[in-house]
Nucleic acid binder design. Structure first.
Lengths: 140, 140
DNA sequence: GGTGAGAACGATAACGGTTCTCATTCGCAT
DNA sequence: ATGCGAATGAGAACCGTTATCGTTCTCACC
């Protein structure tokens, strides 16, 4: 994941989001996370650094970024929302049920299966989400 | 979906849940829903009938039933939790993005793909969830 | 048919994550 | 420099959910 200010700023502009200092701070922090984080976690980490970003700004920024497709939202079974900076392309997620590690699965190849399953029930599929839950290499 | 009191009562007992009058009312109402419903929706529908079930009881019952695997929980992208009475077997869901209809997809057949994708990243898969979003026959 | 212990229940308060409000500050074009 | 609209911070408000607690119900046992 690109972590320079410059690259992150371009990432924002490319997706039609004005690159303000606060948004860059949020995005930069997000880029350093290996796994997904909640808005509150992100906020407290920003607090731990020099940033004085308000909680509302963190929520606003994350909502904006997820709307623009810059970050992924994982709803994590009823708990709070988790955010993660992922690649632009279509992908799915592997979740470790032990350490909660999140890994992207880039190779999808499920389009045929998805549209067949949809067709069988009279649907036309426009999107699909797959979450694989399991144990990562470390937790096995 | 079986809708007789008797059948629903057996469904509860079979899953280790005592079949009390309140729980039967909740389950009976749930069995009449075509799509998924929130706890509050279910509660107000029960209110509309003869039941005086409390909101807390509805929440408690739904939590218990989902824990025992009797009902499915759909997290529906950040909003509130939705509940649905589904079949016992492993299945996935088709969601209509227009009318929010929910249809079960019984045929999975993704196990090989899932374990291969997991293995590729050092994971061992224990479970997976698939949601297909699209348009149903009526909304097309 | 009572009786007692524990589970279930209803009403409502409490909780926690998220969103809204509004006054202030900032960014940018002029 | 200046003005205007967007962005921001602090905290209140909101709302779905959970906890509390006194009451009621269920059911095994007598």
């Amino acid at each position: 994941m690109a972590t320079t200010r410059q690259a992150l700023s371009q990432l924002l502009e490319r997706n039609g989001v004005r690159a303000t200092p606060r948004r860059l701070e949020v995005l930069e922090e997000l880029a350093q996370e290996r796994d997904d984080v909640t808005a509150q976690q992100l906020w407290s980490r920003l607090r731990g650094r020099d940033s004085r970003a308000g909680l509302a700004t963190v929520y606003r920024t994350l909502a904006l970024l997820s709307e623009k497709g810059v970050v992924d939202v994982l709803s994590h079974q009823g708990g709070e929302q988790c955010y993660r900076l992922c690649g632009d392309e279509h992908h799915h997620h592997l979740l470790c049920e032990c350490c909660h590690r999140v890994v992207e699965v880039q190779e999808c190849g499920l389009d045929d299966w998805v549209s067949a399953a949809a067709k069988r029930h009279g649907f036309v599929a426009t999107d699909h989400r797959v979450e694989i839950v399991g144990l990562c290499a470390d937790c096995r």
